[in-house]
Design a protein around this nucleic acid. Sequence first.
DNA 1: ATGGTAGGTGCCCTA
Length: 258
Amino acid sequence: MKIASWNVNSLKVRLPHLQQWCADAAPDILALQETKSEDGAFPLPAIQALGYHCVFSGQRTYNGVAILAREAPTDVVTDVAGLDDPQRRFLAATVGGLRIVNLYVVNGQSVGSEKYAYKLRWLDAVTAQLREELARHPELVVLGDFNIAPEDRDVHDPEAWREQILCSTPEREALRAMLDLGLHDSFRLHNDEPGQYSWWDYRQAAFRRDLGLRIDLVLVSESLKARVADVGIDRVTRTWERPSDHAPAWVRLSDTTS
DNA sequence: ATGGTAGGTGCCCTA
């Protein structure tokens, strides 16, 4: 069971990349962020042609999330309780006994801005909702573009990024509060190395110089932790023509033995 | 050095 997250930065532009990566990597479940596609314009036939069921929650121009899965997703939730929020950043569904929550966390622009305050409010509300999800579904996967680098080893230049957006202490504490529900950053269960990035800015030739951050995460609940057999970030997609600025992050779960 | 590039939109906004 391979589960992946990828911020595609426009599904319309990145459809060929999605087709290629799905052929290469064969994920069973794939969470997409920044589809930038209204639901009425979602390219469902192209997704189905890849062999996936799909649920999605989108809007014009910004945001937008989707879950692709070999099995049909059920019990879909698109809204965060307690937030009257038109921004389409949250999508939960059950797939073959696993509860999947796809997050496109608010970027926050800069520390202290109004968007930053919204980011922290949004994370608070989502964490409260995840507490409920976890109570109902012990086998929980929370994945997506978190727009937070968990630790300094996830940042190419920690001093330059110190207390900057994506790295500030309040953001990291908000992520910690989410992990404290009983979730684990699956990548760090199998890889202790620094320099393992999932996002490189389009500007300043950041990818060529490997000026990246690891902000795309796959969190697994306690009851799934022992099944995490392998993890990875497929940075090769960032070398492709007209790439997303994010690479897919994935986890492979061993089969249940019952 | 407060830039740069990319996507979607429409004469800027967000990342």
